[in-house]
Design a protein around this nucleic acid. Structure first.
Length: 267
DNA sequence: GCCATATGGAAAG
DNA sequence: TTTCCCTATGGCA
């Protein structure tokens, strides 16, 4: 499910499956019927991600914009399409592949100006090789909690609730700390760690953040797995022992999102 | 069947 | 800060 690494992976899958050839496009559910009709038979030239936004370019400067939101899925399969199952907003089909989009918060056709309006609102993306300075400067000047700032897509694009919790744990920083109270070298290290962790996520399709020396197996505990598919320090581990110090992991709600941290390791 | 839940974000108040 | 929207799934009557 969707943090930035998922969307970058998805863009790569779409390119591999469809780039350069005409595709059939339809909207079995009907809620993208007009857009699908306009795209049907067009060639997808490219696809890329910026943060959690997916953009696919079709002939004549038309951009398909998809945002998965909390529930969305976009399954790309390198096999001919079978019967539609469930609420499929968009189906793309070629002779050798198909892709089904369900539950997106956005699925729309944009012209270049409208696409630019969306990306202009996004901060730098650790997965695009962007210059982090705008993000680091904004955090360094803000009184808002760093846990909120990292989730703000206009500050950093692509970080979601899991990477937010995990990168702050790895940096030893309490999510409630004001951004401007965090030393600049720590902010730089957090950015470098996001690049590292999210790049790994693109490669593996899961979120793994636990260093080898803290892995449950290495500490005599059974491995654990969660819906995000990987091993993590604090995300959704409220009340369980911190993998490093054993203190029960804390949780709270900030900006309507569950937040997890170790009150001992993060200051 | 009903309810809670989820890695998101925009709009309304 | 609260409300609402998108979908599928698992637990429980």
């Amino acid at each position: 499910m969707p943090e930035g690494h998922t969307i970058h992976r998805l863009a790569r899958s779409l390119r591999a499956a469809f780039a350069g050839e005409p595709v059939s496009v339809c909207s079995p559910q009907g809620r993208f019927a007009d857009g699908a009709k306009k795209l049907d038979g067009a060639t997808m030239n490219s696809a890329h991600a910026h943060g959690k936004h997916l953009f696919a370019e079709f002939d004549a400067d038309r951009w398909l914009h998809v945002h998965l939101g909390l529930f969305g899925r976009f399954d790309v399969v390198e096999e001919p399409a079978g019967p539609v199952r469930g609420e499929v907003r968009l189906r793309m089909t070629s002779a050798r592949a198909h892709a089904d989009l369900r539950g997106p918060s956005a699925c729309e056709l944009l012209d270049p100006a409208a696409k630019e309006a969306i990306t202009a609102r996004l901060g730098p993306d650790p997965l695009r090789g962007d210059d982090p300075e705008p993000a680091l400067n904004r955090i360094a000047r803000s009184a808002a909690p760093i846990g909120i700032l990292l989730m703000d897509q206009s500050v950093v694009a692509g970080v979601g609730n899991v990477y937010r919790a995990e990168v702050l744990f790895r940096a030893g920083v309490d999510p409630a700390r004001p951004g401007r109270s965090v030393p600049v070298d720590v902010l730089q290290a957090i950015w470098a760690d996001l690049v590292h962790l999210m790049t790994l996520g693109v490669r593996t399709g899961r979120i793994d953040t636990v260093r080898p020396e803290h892995e449950p197996a290495a500490m005599g505990r059974a491995p654990r797995s969660d819906d995000h598919g990987g091993e993590v320090y604090v995300y959704r581990r409220a009340g369980q022992a911190c993998l490093v110090c054993g203190t029960p992991v804390s949780s709270g709600v900030a900006a309507a999102r569950n937040t997890f941290w170790c009150p001992t390791c993060q200051r």
